[in-house]
């Protein structure tokens, strides 16, 4: 079954990941990727670090299901998600999505779909540390709207 999911504390090397992902598969004509980073500013407060909590077991299952939906809907050759958990600093990579297809349209659309669904379906929660203390990040309406448009 194509589609792989990794949840990890460690950073990842996107160049190495892309090379490994597309290695010796000459039927692939297009690879799209998305990388999400920790910003240093949210709601006009300076963020010093962020901690990501998740629901082990459900996280992997929900991401795998999202990948399977994407693979079926866009006839992807393969897709992959890497998501980090634990403590992260501004500039750190949080999430990486890559999709492979014969032609670019499918890879682009599927990559965006996977991120939109991950944002609203995968059980991760961010807590930001700022100078005035720590706070849980609230879910955003715009993320729900982004996921809705694929229905």
């Amino acid at each position: 079954m194509p589609g792989s999911v990794r949840i990890q504390h460690e950073d990842f090397d996107i160049g190495a990941e892309i090379r490994h992902f597309q290695q010796s598969r000459t039927e692939i004509g297009a690879v799209a990727t998305f990388t999400g980073l920790v910003r240093d500013l949210n709601l006009s407060d300076k963020v010093s670090s962020m901690t990501l909590e998740h629901y082990p077991g459900m996280t992997e299952k929900s991401l795998q299901e999202i990948l399977e939906q994407a693979i079926e809907r866009w006839q992807l050759i393969d897709a992959m998600v890497i998501h980090r958990v634990g403590k992260l600093l501004p500039g750190d990579q949080i999430v990486f999505v890559t999709t492979a297809s014969a032609h670019r349209g499918d890879a682009f659309s599927a990559c965006e779909f996977i991120m939109d669904y991950l944002k609203t379906q995968a059980p991760f929660w961010k807590k930001e540390e700022t100078a005035s203390g720590s706070r849980w990040v609230d879910a955003r309406e715009t993320d729900s709207d982004a996921a809705e448009r694929w229905k």
Binding site: Y55, H83, V95, K119, T120, A122, F124, W125
Partner: peptide, 9 residues
């Protein structure tokens, strides 16, 4: 499991 709206990515 009970949890608040998710905020990953």
């Amino acid at each position: 499991a009970f949890f608040p709206p998710v905020t990953g990515g």
